[in-house]
Structure formats: structure tokens, C-alpha cells
Design a protein around this nucleic acid. Structure first.
Lengths: 346, 346
DNA sequence: CTGAAAGCGCTAACAT
DNA sequence: ATGTTAGCGCTTTCAG
């Protein structure tokens, strides 16, 4: 067996500092029982040599990796143009940076990739736990990961009553508030362009909005259209909606709202004078649309931060199992809802 | 020392299959010298038990991790709203998925984070190599990683003559082509809203466009404005530009072009009738603007795929050191350039 | 407060 | 084609 010479490791650092590798290990890990002088000496050698512990060896010996995974299924549909995932990734990475933890990314588009990714995620020694963005109805991945004993935190409400830890925005409450708000502005012929219903967020937004209208004795009647993910879906839905002459429409996602605005313009109408709009996400920068969108805004950064914190708790065994956090949304009023035209909401 | 019982490992699988752990290792790693019967028997046990090799142990013994890092500096500026990074991440993850490699993400916003991240990246046993998206002028990170012996591939042209492997879009050539195209349509008062010049892509686009005009005996004269990253920057630049009455403007990024369109609208003018626009990136989905943008389009997916392939080559020592790949852009003609109004380009 | 020693699960010669 | 063996660098009892 050939031995590489002088590889920088605990033993070597110990030799240079005149202590054993155990002591160096203690210094590296910030354990208390080390005399100040020894600690200083070891730290000096480490700084001088640029020594860094070997992550694999650490993981092997301690059974912890210092890595958390972020699992994003069906990436292609949304990651392209929806700023939500960009913001989420950014928020999570900020939090993992602060926690001194490395972030691994598991994206997949097809079922076949899902299987392969799954195997990699659950391979021991890769990650200590995962954050899963899975609000897709009927996705088995979540249950599988959880069953395999992998510490999990879900961003979004999981489609299952299994006791999973999750953090979600209040899609239901926020949409209901939007309904109340539009009703309060005096709109009578209120419509709904529904968000995709293949995920829990969409389902919750739809029911929240309908319930909110009912609270005020209103209903969408036939002023409801099924939407999708894209701007084009929003454009089509609004074009179809206009024949029913709504005076205000709740559009289930910001991206669809962009398309909806275009449909209104193409029909020779104006927003908010002819049709007012409130959307959901708060994720498109306001200046990108004309008029600027009034939107129920998700606290994405908070969701991201919470997810990381929750995951740490699940990993180290502290904290409730199956803790479920629903963060409040905020209705940010801009021009598209026509509030300025209707000064006194009743 | 307390021993956990029955931990699933090579030895255990070997016991169950009646072979040694070496043989199991060979099967797991797809090595040729295993008899078909033994292979089948071992595979069966693996499938049955759900055995997965321990990544840390593997990394420790083999000195390879099966993980590549993606380093994105100054994430906050762009990752929020620019689809470029989303697409890049997606493209890279598709390629790493295909290669059976895990992707780790290192994002940072501040200088302080950069130091911490750097340490984590170069820690042995974390990644086999990194893809760095660093076209920022004067960023020392790249040189440091490379000097530390970390296999690196850069996406974008690095700001240094150091022999680094990189893959870039042809920012210079694409911009030059845009200039030729606008000149060919007969525009005479052509202007430039320059992309940010703190990165090589911006620098290359500017010089390419100016050279392209010069090729046709044209110049921007005083029709040049400094841009930035945001739509708002584009809006301001175009608003300022309009006083010089350009008939066509090359806008250095798609995002700025969105703002530029708004500025034209706000000035009561029309695009392309009053001012034509060609932008660079091809990254904003066409239906998002009105008129749809004629744009020099980057092959983001190809860049991502190439980066992963190059990195693999650098890691396993095959392939040129310092290979430099510049992928061609494509001028995608839509409405904003006014080509339809000027049927016969000369 | 420090050191010695026993693994963690795997790979990679080497031997058969 | 298969088994044996010696580490990889670290953490973690256990002694002192």
C-alpha cells in the first residue's frame, strides 16, 4: 500500500503543535475542556497550515454530515420563470450559511429522475435532513422520505394527514381576506381565476376566496375560470372571463395576473377602471406591471428561514415532531384593485 | 465501545449473500470481474434490504465525493428576478442528475459570507470540484479556489488571463451581430443602453455593439446611457435616452428592455414605430412584453451542460486544462426591432 | 485537561 | 473471480 506523505490531518496538526490528535479534534470542534494555551497553539498551527477537517471522515465517525438537502420536484414547470423558487432558494441558503451548514440541491422533472434522486437523498452520509417543497397532490415522495427515517420539513402544506413538520403561508386566510377586501370596495360582480388545483396552495386559495365571498353574501356565480402556471394561462382565462362582465377578479397567482392584465388591455378595457384585479404571491416586483398589482403577499424569506430552523430541530431531536407553522400573508394594496377609485370602502 | 447492531453495510450484505465485502463492493460499483450468478445474488440482497453505500465512507476511502458545487456570488442582486440563474441552476441540475452526481449550492451575498463559504467549499470531502458563475471584475475568489487546487469551471468569461477553464456565451459576437442587424434595417440614429460594466459579459456586449456599428460606418455619438441590473435602471436610461431622439436602441439586458419599453410608453411613444429595440439575453419569455422583444439569445442550457461536462473532465484529469468554450448566440427576431415595418433590410 | 485506542464503512492493492 | 487486509481521517469512549 502506498502512503501519501504529509497529508494534512489531525495527527499532523497534533504533531506540529505537540499534542495528540484528540486534543486537536477538541479544539476544532470548540469543546470546552482545553487549556487556553494549548488551544492557542493549536489554532495557530491550523491557521498557518490552512488545515480543514475532512467532511467525509467526520460524517463517517460522527454520523452527521453538516449538509441539508433541498428537494424541489417538478422543477421545470415553475423554476424557469417563477421568482418564488429563486427567492426560496436564496432565503434557505442565507439561513444555512448562517448556520454553518452546506446546502445540496435535488431538482427533478420526471418520475424517472425522482427515483434516482430519492436514492441519492437517502444514501447515508449525504445529508442530515431535507427540506421538501412538495405541495403537489398525491406525490408519494414525501411519505417515502419520512418513512425511511429521513428528517424532513415541508415548505407548503403537504397533501396528507401524516404528521409531517411543515411551514406554509396562509393561502386560505389570505385569499379570504382578498375576498373581503374586494367586497368592501363595493364590487358586485366578482370573479375568480383559479390557481392550479394540483397542489394544496391552489386548493386552499380557491376555497379561501370562495368562503370569503360567502362571508359577505356574495358568490362568483359563473364567473370562475380554471387557470394554470403561466402568463398565457392567465391571459386565456381572463379573456374567457370578460364575456361575463366581472367588475373585479381575484387571480390565483401573480404570473397569471400578468397575463390577465394583458387580456384586459387586448380587449380594449382598462384595469382597474373596467376590471379590478387582486392577485396572490406578491412575488413579482411591482414595477413590472402596469398598473402595479395589488397582491396577497407571501412571506417567502420567513418561510425559508423557518424551514431551516425547524429542520435543525428535527435533526437534533429537539422540538415537536409534526410541528406545523402557518405564516400570515399580507395584502399589499397598489393600483390594480382600484382602491383609489373607490375612496370609502364600506 | 458500544456497537450498533445490524447496521446495513457491505459486510452485512456480504454475509446475507454469502460472499465477502469486496465482492459486494464490486457489484455496487459495477466492476466487471464478478460472475453473473454472484452478481444476481448480491443485487437481490441489496434490493431486498434497501442497502445504500455510505457516502462519507466512500469519500474517505476513495478521495472522491460524487458531489459538485455550484458557487454563485452576489446572489441577491440578480437571483431574485433574473431568470438567468434559475435556468442555469436547472440546466446544471439536469446534467448532474444524468451524471449521477449530487449538486451542492454555495450562494453568498456579502464579503463576510464569501470567506466562510470559501472555507466550506475547499474543505476536503465536500465536493470534487466547482462550477463558479463569476464574471464580476476583480473578484479574487476564482483565483483562490484554483490556487487551492480545487477543480474549477467558470460559467462566463473570467476577468483574468489566468488559464482557467470556462464556458461563455459569445457576448461580443452576439452584440456585434445586433449592431449589424439594426444597421441593416436602415436605422441611422442608433443608441446603446449599456449593460452593467462591473462584469465581463457587460464589457463584452458593449464593445461588441460599438464595434458592430463601426463596421457599418455608424456610431452612437452621444446616444449612450449607462444601465444597471433592474427594469427601473432600464426605464431611467431609456427616458434619458429619448431626448436624443434615437430611432433604434440596443439594450444590454432583457430586464432593462422591459423597463425601456415602459419608458417609451410613458413618453407617449410607440415601439417599434418610434423607437425600435433589440436586447440581449433571450431569457424573458416573449409573451411577457408588448411588443415581444427581439433579443440576442444565450444558449443557457448548453452552457450549463457544457460546464458540467468540462468539470468532470477537469476532475478526472482528462481533457485540456484551461479549455475555453464560447458558445454562439442567436438573434431571435420578434416585433420590437421593427423588422416587419422595414421589409427589405439592405 | 490530555492521550490512547477502537472503530465508522468503504476502497484498493495484493494474494489466491 | 473472489477473499484478505490495510488504511482513509475523524469522533468518541475510556484511562489517567
Amino acid at each position: 500500500v502506498v502512503r501519501r506523505q504529509g497529508r494534512l490531518n489531525l495527527e499532523e496538526i497534533g504533531r506540529l503543535a505537540g499534542v495528540s490528535r484528540s486534543t486537536v479534534s477538541r479544539v476544532v470542534n470548540g469543546e470546552p475542556n482545553v487549556s487556553p494555551e494549548v488551544r492557542a497553539r493549536v489554532d495557530a498551527v491550523i491557521a498557518e497550515t490552512g488545515y480543514r477537517p475532512h467532511a467525509g471522515a467526520r460524517s463517517l465517525a460522527s454520523n452527521r454530515t453538516g449538509v441539508v438537502g433541498l428537494v424541489i420536484p417538478s422543477a421545470v414547470e415553475t423554476l424557469f420563470d417563477d421568482p418564488f423558487f429563486g427567492r426560496l432558494i436564496l432565503g434557505i441558503s442565507e439561513e444555512t450559511n448562517a448556520a454553518g451548514v452546506v446546502l445540496s440541491l435535488f431538482l427533478f422533472n420526471e418520475e424517472s429522475e425522482e427515483r434516482a434522486i430519492y436514492k441519492r437523498v437517502v444514501s447515508p452520509g449525504h445529508v442530515d435532513g431535507v427540506i421538501v417543497t412538495a405541495t403537489t397532490m398525491g406525490d408519494p415522495l414525501l411519505a417515502e422520505l419520512s418513512d425511511a427515517g429521513m428528517p424532513c420539513v415541508v415548505v407548503g402544506r403537504p397533501d396528507s394527514d401524516a404528521p409531517l413538520t411543515f411551514v406554509d403561508a396562509d393561502n386560505y386566510g389570505g385569499s379570504r381576506e382578498a375576498a373581503h377586501y374586494l367586497a368592501g370596495l363595493g364590487y358586485q360582480r366578482i370573479g375568480l381565476i383559479a390557481p392550479p388545483s394540483n397542489n394544496t396552495a391552489g386548493v386552499d386559495r380557491r376555497s379561501g376566496f370562495l368562503d370569503g365571498l360567502a362571508d359577505r353574501g356574495l358568490s362568483v356565480d359563473d364567473r370562475i375560470r380554471e387557470g394554470g402556471w403561466s402568463e398565457e394561462a392567465g391571459r386565456r382565462a381572463m379573456a374567457a372571463m370578460l364575456v361575463d362582465r366581472p367588475d373585479a377578479v381575484f387571480v390565483g397567482t401573480d404570473r397569471m395576473a400578468v397575463g390577465a392584465l394583458r387580456a384586459i388591455r387586448e380587449a380594449g378595457m382598462r384595469c382597474p377602471e373596467d376590471v379590478a384585479i387582486v392577485s396572490f404571491d406578491g412575488i413579482i416586483s411591482p414595477d413590472q406591471t402596469d398598473p402595479r398589482l395589488t397582491s396577497v403577499t407571501q412571506p417567502v424569506a420567513q418561510m425559508a428561514a423557518q424551514a431551516v430552523v425547524l429542520l435543525q430541530a428535527v435533526i437534533d431531536g429537539s422540538g415537536d415532531p409534526a410541528e406545523q407553522i402557518v405564516l400570515p400573508t399580507e395584502l399589499v394594496v397598489r393600483e390594480s384593485c382600484g382602491a383609489a377609485l373607490r375612496k370609502a370602502p364600506r
